[in-house]
Amino acid sequence: MLKPLVFIASLGPFAWLIWAGLTGNLSANPLSDVTNETGVWTLRFLCITLAITPLRKLTGWNAAIRFRRVAGLFAFFYGTLHFLTYVIADRFAALDFPDGMVAWTTVRNLAKSVGEDVYKRPFITVGFTTWTSMVPLALTSTSGMIRRLGGRRWNLLHRLVYLTASLGVVHYWWLVKADVSRPIAYGIVVGSLLAFRIWLARARAAVAPTRRLHTDGSSPKREAVGRAK
């Protein structure tokens, strides 16, 4: 019951953009609005995705794991819209069309224009890397792929999302001309969510040796006991 609701709510920003665009509720530069909004929603969904684990650990509400995949896929969805808006509104719209708009030269020139921009401008390079880093995560998000990869390898691969979120913040920071208050806010949220994981890993490492004492039946080692305190 909750899952379809979450799905519909996650489509809300997309629906809102379309509605606002059609009814003239965007600014005088609607393409810039679409670019900004899809970018910011990508970051918001990345934050939600990263918040699921801390939420489970802190509240014990383990069922929250059910929403992690959908949140991650929506981050990819908005990230892809963001990338496509850039390709169309920024790159395609600036092309010359020597053979008309529908022509092979258009495809070739567009690919060249995107490639050059990604190569030349660090701000775009970071943005493109952010989006690219989500592709393998989206592709391996199905239950079949989890099984095929095996839990351990899948988990390792999906730690890539830490990089995605960090690069996303850098990309946003870079965009802003002077007022960095919003990028700072994203930096704090992503930073806290990542710090929680470091803290969690440390806490686990600290208790791990004691657990081993109970399971392998060997005699306790001094240093292990010492670290277990």
């Binding site: 920003p13 606002a20 965007l26 609005d33 700072i184 806010a185 994203y186 949220v189 806290s192």
Partner: peptide
Amino acid sequence: TTGTAAAVATGVIGAGAFLRAA
């Protein structure tokens, strides 16, 4: 402190979630 900073930051990124025409 961390909790407060994170809460404030969450508020900032959630604010203005929806655009409206000026």
